[in-house]
Design a protein around this nucleic acid. Structure first.
Length: 108
DNA sequence: CGTATGACGAGCC
DNA sequence: AGGCTCGCCATAC
């Protein structure tokens, strides 16, 4: 089984409010992994189909949907986000200034 | 226990 | 601006 780290990551992802997105690095920091952004990606990849975790709200630091082995998931993620009101730019990027989730105690 | 891998990130060319 | 390389670190083999 995957380590508890995954559970911590999923917990962090669940905190992301609807209509907002968080970066892998951000989730990693919240989950206590620090710079384990890659591990977050791993955890997402390990998610089963039909999971309750809002994995689609996790994007990379550029506000784009990360490239994965199976290209299908990318489209699914975009559709889910748009359904929540997240707007994509013509280049397929999300405006993090607008949809980027900012957990309490964090400032910019 | 050592090596390889990867849904990332920041830096350099 | 766009593309390539190196670094971080947990998981898998």
């Amino acid at each position: 089984m995957a380590a508890d780290s995954y559970q911590a990551i999923y917990r962090a992802v669940r905190r992301i409010p609807r209509g907002k997105v968080a970066t892998y690095g951000q989730v990693a920091a919240i989950a206590g992994l620090g710079r384990g952004a890659r591990q977050v990606g791993y955890a997402m990849h390990a998610l089963p189909t039909g999971t309750a975790v809002p994995w689609h709200r996790v994007v990379n630091a550029r506000g784009e949907i990360s490239r994965r082995a199976s290209g299908e998931g990318e489209l699914d993620q975009r559709l889910r986000l748009e359904a929540e009101g997240v707007r994509f730019s013509w280049r397929g990027r999300i405006d993090l200034r607008r949809h980027g989730w900012q957990p309490a105690r964090s400032r910019r």
